[in-house]
């Protein structure tokens, strides 16, 4: 069943000023419940604007967003309820931390939802566990944490609202490789446990290839492709024409194929590539 449906969605910045710019241009798509969607696109392709329309932070110039079949702007006064259902983690979310302790900061969302004290406590602890924050850290000031910890605390602050759809805008930007893979695996395990819908915006094709069920490609405010990672990353040339690229390992496998080796196109992870190459070598009797 589709949880989010978008119809003819448009957004123009700075209408009637010299700075007018169409950021999102007639978008039509639907996202199924329980999917992990990877959203890729060149800088300025309208990704961030698009995701901010999903939870009603930006009101579309025209078109509609449906959450569970209901137009989110049907009752503009109750738009906050939508924001609890579609949790949004911004780029560099660590800059939104403000409260005295990490615990209080994570509790900000649940408090706004109007939950009772005990419930808040439970959700905060759960969210902290999901994002890998130890109990000891919860008592610290958010400004004393390390960069990676701050990021996780900020993500926990959104997870604590227990949203049906979790949107992450470049969650791994600026993290070291270890922090990156840790964060991705945490998102993945959170998704598996909670079985909710996750939308990840990223510039890292490797991340997307690793985690996404379907990939959404945006270019100049328009929806360019929307398919499985295998099919998307098999079209290396088309992606490159939009200023994007395929994961490094996919590229290597494509060049191997061009050299005449019998490997498949849509290899997305190093593990898959390893299996492919081993089986190829076995077939040729070299190992």
């Amino acid at each position: 069943m589709s949880i989010i449906e978008v119809k003819d969605l448009c957004f123009t910045y700075g209408i009637k000023t010299p700075f007018e710019k169409k950021a999102v241009d007639s978008l039509n798509l639907s996202i199924n419940e329980g999917e992990i969607i990877g959203l890729i696109g060149h800088t300025g392709s309208g990704k961030s604007t698009f995701v901010q329309m999903l939870n009603g932070l930006i009101r579309p110039t025209s078109g509609q967003v449906f959450l569970n079949g209901e137009d989110i702007w049907a009752k503009p006064k109750e738009i906050r309820k939508i924001r609890f259902k579609v949790g949004m983690v911004f780029q560099y979310p660590e800059y939104q931390l403000f409260d005295e302790t990490v615990y209080d900061d994570i509790a900000f969302g649940p408090k706004n939802m109007g939950l009772s004290g005990e419930k808040i406590d439970a959700t905060v602890k759960k969210a902290a566990k999901f994002s890998g924050l130890s109990e000891k850290l919860l008592k610290k000031s958010p400004f004393d944490l390390s960069g990676g910890e701050k990021r996780r605390a900020a993500i926990a602050g959104v997870i604590a609202m227990d949203p049906d759809v979790l949107v992450l805008d470049e969650p791994t930007a600026g993290l070291d490789p270890k922090g990156k893979s840790l964060l991705l695996s945490q998102i993945n395990s959170y998704h598996r446990e909670r079985n909710n819908t996750v939308i990840i915006v990223s510039h890292s094709m490797e991340d997307i290839a690793q985690i996404a069920d379907r990939v959404l490609v945006m270019n100049k405010g328009r929806l360019e492709m929307f398919d499985t990672p295998k099919k998307i990353f098999a079209q290396a040339e088309k992606l490159e024409s939009m200023g994007l690229r395929v994961p490094q390992i996919t590229k290597i496998m494509i060049s191997l194929k061009e050299k005449g080796y019998d490997v498949s196109d849509g290899v997305l992870t190093v593990e898959q590539a390893f299996c492919e190459i081993v089986s190829l070598l076995k077939k040729e009797g070299k190992i």
Partner: peptide, 16 residues
């Protein structure tokens, strides 16, 4: 711009 961003982030967490 920063204010805008932070406001959006807090609104996303239900700040009223």
């Amino acid at each position: 711009e920063e204010t805008d961003k932070i406001m959006s982030a807090q609104k996303a967490r239900g700040a009223d």
